[in-house]
């Protein structure tokens, strides 16, 4: 500890190498984001628990529910199986984004993975690009499987016009984006890796029942369905029904319409709100450090 002051005085800061680079490095962030996308996707499919719990839940529920409840609605060419096949696409999207990230990031944070990354020169945005990218890849695979099963066994018809494909695409993208943001934000709620599954799964399952996914929207009491309208899942399922059940089945909706404008508005609002929540609450630090 001797003569520290003279030590630094002898070294004017201008003689040091320039330590700062531009804060924003979009090309590098994007390149590393893609590197992380590949890595995250690989990790997802290697984790058997996640595949069972996150990836298969919509598939399993579809096979069970659409096989048990097969009645045809009075005067319509629509079966309960078809309603399930459409609604459970919402479940699938929410599972691979909200539930997946809510649990996975909480575990990663608890086990020190996040702070290890935070100590590297990896741009933080690359981490989020990796999460969003891998969720997108997993979601596309999930939807392809659900549609395949729906078409093969439960009389689901793929969209036949460019217009409905367009609706399908924006409902999918907006819904996935909103649920992804909410999943990242929700990952800050569990206090440990052990509690993560329980903490994230409870709201997930409750929403499935009240939003018209696990129970057809026609059987959920109107007041409950309206209450679930605060959350994005109800609108995601509704948007998917508009794509797969066709215009004549709109009479089954509470308002007699699919309200696509409102679907877009609510999902976009949740996406922006979720993003703001992420920016405000995301922690690289685990809960053990004081």
């Amino acid at each position: 500890m001797s003569e520290p002051a003279t030590l630094t005085a002898a070294q004017p800061s201008s003689s040091r190498p320039p330590a700062r680079m531009p804060r924003v490095e979009p090309a590098r962030a994007l390149r590393l984001g893609l590197v992380r996308t590949a890595l995250e996707t690989r990790m997802f499919f290697r984790e058997r628990d996640q595949i069972a719990f996150v990836f298969s839940i919509a598939v399993v529920m579809l096979i069970i529910l659409a096989s048990i409840f097969t009645t045809r609605y009075n005067g319509l060419d629509v079966t309960v199986s078809q309603v399930y096949a459409a609604g459970l696409i919402g479940t699938g999207i929410m599972a691979v984004s909200f539930q997946n990230l809510g649990i996975a990031i909480a575990v990663e944070r608890d086990l020190g993975g996040l702070r290890r990354l935070a100590a590297t020169p990896m741009p933080p945005s690359a981490y989020f690009i990796g999460k969003v990218g891998s969720v997108f890849v997993v979601a596309v695979i999930q939807i392809a499987i659900l549609l395949g099963i729906g078409v093969a066994f439960y009389d689901l018809d793929l969209p036949s016009t460019i217009g409905t494909w367009f609706t399908f695409t924006w409902v999918f993208v907006l819904g996935l984006a909103a649920m992804t943001m909410l999943g990242i934000a929700a990952s800050s709620v569990p206090r440990s890796a052990r509690s993560a599954t329980a903490v994230i799964t409870l709201p997930f399952v409750v929403l499935q029942f009240i939003s018209g996914a696990f129970i057809p929207h026609t059987d959920v009491p109107d007041w409950l369905l309206n209450a679930s309208g605060i959350f994005p899942l109800k609108w995601l399922c509704q948007g998917m029904r508009s794509v797969f059940l066709g215009p004549e089945a709109a009479v089954l909706e509470v308002t007699g319409s699919y309200e696509l404008g409102k679907v877009a508005l609510v999902l976009a609002a949740w996406m922006i709100g979720g993003l703001a929540l992420c920016l405000l609450t995301f922690r690289w630090r685990d809960n053990h450090t004081k």
Binding site: R42, R46, E108, L111, G112, R115
Partner: peptide, 13 residues
Amino acid sequence: GVVWQSTADAPEL
């Protein structure tokens, strides 16, 4: 460089 305690965060890699 930082050496953290215990790598358990990416068990499948």
